[in-house]
């Protein structure tokens, strides 16, 4: 089975406000806020860590959830975020120009 890689889209704007991630689309300036799972996915989306590892090491550590179910949900979430051009997804590692994730407060 192929692995999925996720990377933050460098065209978006992002900032964490009291743990809640605000993302502004680079496509049409639509503003999104990410829930806790999506925020973990965003923060971990470095383009080189496969999604299954993110699920195993970050999401399953945070939530009591079966790994297979968590991976299925994470893939769905990743594809939804990608449809809004918030992240990029690929079956190959995705080179990143910088490691920023819009972290602050």
């Amino acid at each position: 089975m192929s692995r999925l890689y996720v990377a933050r889209n460098p065209r978006v704007a992002a900032r964490s406000l009291d743990g809640e991630m605000m993302i502004m689309s680079g496509r049409d300036s639509t503003l999104f806020t990410l829930n806790k799972t999506a925020t973990i996915l965003w923060q971990s989306a470095d383009g080189t860590t496969p999604l299954d590892e993110i699920v195993e090491h970050r999401i399953c550590q945070e939530f009591e959830v079966e790994p297979a179910e968590a991976l299925h949900d994470a893939e769905t979430l990743a594809r939804e975020l990608a449809s809004h051009e918030i992240i990029q997804i690929s079956e190959e590692p995705i080179p990143q120009p910088n490691p920023a994730a819009g972290e602050s407060r």
């Binding site: 502004m24 049409d28 300036s29 639509t30 503003l31 999104f32 806020t33 990410l34 829930n35 799972t37 999506a38 979430l77 939804e80 975020l81 809004h84 918030i86």
Partner: peptide
């Protein structure tokens, strides 16, 4: 000023 459609993932 800024389009702000709510779409929480």
């Amino acid at each position: 000023e800024t389009s702000a459609t709510s779409a929480t993932a």
